[in-house]
Design a protein around this nucleic acid. Structure first.
Length: 457
RNA sequence: GGCCGGAUGGCAGAGUGGCUAUGCAGAGGACUGCAAAUCCUCGUACAGCGGUUCGAUUCCGCUUCCGGCCUCCA
């Protein structure tokens, strides 16, 4: 089965064929580091992590190059630093570190490259110079602006005509723009703002140019896949296309555009004013990162997702079941199994993760029903390989089921209870079990007389 | 106002022009000292109204409702 992906450019599923199967190139818009990453930020990180895992499986890990940028110069960053008094560099470094910790907890593989905007100012300046030279950009009032009318099919990705953009605009148009739809490539910096010397004076880049320059620097002129949240289609991705295509003599920028839908929380859009702004840290305080990841994968990436407490609990329960089966199947694991066919087929059909999870449940049922140890070993390996493709089930089952801590005390109580059971003192045995249950510990007596335990969910 | 999405059983969530996933919750059974876990069985759902069709939840149109973008935003 070929890999099929939904391309925003055509609004259709298309068979994916990379330009060069020995170097599959994917670029995803990463965070602007000025605040704690929220659950909405987690969605593209997880979704494109699954795609990255799948591409590596299909083309070989050495033949996929995934870049996810960090925007560490931006007006929001400047504003935040000014507000709190924290130096900009401290703010961006601190926030980037938190981002890395959070997404690692969500079980994501780090991208091959994580370019930072401030490390690519010369490339941005060069690209802007090229655009000016080819008359796609102009200088006005110390700004450099992209001339939207210089590009005939501007608006193709978002399917918006220039007239529509202007008609819908709710912000005042800066007087120095030749056309209301023109956007900034470079803007001047006040003395108290960060800035770099450029042919147009001391200033800083506009947001859109960063991604164009960084993707060119690391992945070349034409990408296979460009991903991001659906809200970035316009204007960010539209403008990236304009910059890159015009700077590259009309050659295409990205061949497949993938966009994930939004996350709402308990049925409402996240916003600071509503007080339902849910950070990844908030979620990690409630449940393990793997549960959050599972909860995210329960919906298809192109469908809106309602993040609720129930969803997180359901994800946890589902993982309990998987890890229970994995703990029970102590059979030795063969070196490497292949993911269940159903899991692969689902993912290859435009990353249908809910269907892939259903296929993983099928594999779970098969493992639970398996008779002999050889079959158990094979099915366990298959289940683990399927989990690996989704970034799930990779931890030690005991670690998942028992969490950290106090095992020795629980073991002592279990030993006491089993002694009571052997003596057929069931009231005493049940009393111990009840006391453990009140502490959130669930016991499971095995046929051989020993007892396993886990945390209740 | 313009442009996009979406509406599936108690909940979550796939999918399909006729054979109606999967998980959770619920009911019954097997197993167990009793449980837990596991296994077996059970629910016949696709917003409404038209149309196309031998047949539509699936295709088309309209209506209603929900959400997003058009401004920083994943």
């Amino acid at each position: 089965m070929p890999l099929v992906l939904h391309n925003t450019l055509t609004r259709r599923k298309e068979v994916f064929a990379p330009l060069d199967a020995r170097r599959v190139r994917m670029y995803v818009c990463g965070p602007t580091v000025y605040d704690l990453p929220h659950i909405g930020n987690a969605r593209p990180v997880i979704v494109f992590d699954v795609l990255y895992r799948l591409l590596r499986r299909l083309y070989g890990a050495a033949h996929v190059c995934y870049a996810r940028n960090i925007t560490d110069i931006d007006d929001k960053i400047i504003a935040r630093a000014k507000e709190t008094g924290e130096p900009i560099r401290d703010l961006t470094e601190r926030t980037a570190t938190i981002f890395h910790e959070d997404v690692a907890a969500l079980g994501t593989v780090p991208p091959d490259i994580e370019p930072r905007a401030t490390d690519h100012i010369p490339q941005m300046i060069r690209m802007i110079e090229t655009l000016i030279a080819s008359r796609h950009a102009y200088i006005a009032d110390h700004h450099v602006l992209f001339a939207v009318t210089s590009m005939s099919d501007y608006g193709r990705l978002s399917r918006r005509s220039r007239d529509e953009m202007i008609a819908g605009a709710r912000v005042e148009v800066a007087p120095y723009k030749r056309d209301p739809a023109d956007f900034v490539l470079w803007k001047p910096s006040a003395p108290d703002q960060p800035g770099w010397d450029s042919p147009w004076g001391r200033g800083r880049p506009g947001w859109h140019i960063e991604c164009s320059a960084m993707s060119e620097a690391h992945l070349g002129e034409t990408l296979d896949i460009h991903g991001g949240g659906i809200d970035l289609i316009f204007p960010h991705h539209e403008n990236e296309i304009a910059q890159s295509v015009c700077a590259h003599g009309g050659r295409p920028f990205a061949r497949y555009w993938l966009h994930n839908e939004f996350v709402v929380v308990e049925g409402e859009k996240m916003s600071k004013s509503l007080g339902n702004f849910l950070t990844i840290r908030d979620v990690l305080a409630e449940a393990p990162g793997e549960a959050a990841r599972y909860a995210m994968l329960m919906s298809h990436y192109r469908d809106p997702l309602d993040w609720t407490a129930d969803r997180l609990t359901e994800a946890r329960r589902a993982l309990d079941r998987f890890y229970l089966a994995l703990r029970q199947a102590e059979a030795p694991v063969p070196a490497a199994g292949d993911a269940p066919q159903g899991v692969r087929a689902a993912l290859e059909d435009d990353l249908n993760t809910p269907l892939a999870l259903a296929a993983l449940h099928d594999a779970l049922g098969a493992l639970n029903k398996a008779g002999n140890t050889a079959e158990k070993a094979r099915l366990k390996a298959e289940l683990l390989a399927g989990g690996a493709l989704l970034g799930l089930l990779q931890q030690d089952p005991q670690a998942w089921l028992q969490g950290g801590g106090e095992a020795s005390e629980i073991d002592a109580l279990i030993a006491e209870r089993n002694a009571a059971r052997r003596a057929r003192n069931f009231p005493r045995a049940d009393d111990i079990r009840t006391r453990l249950a009140m502490r959130g510990i669930v016991l499971e007596d095995k046929p051989d007389g020993t007892t396993d335990w886990r945390r209740a969910t």
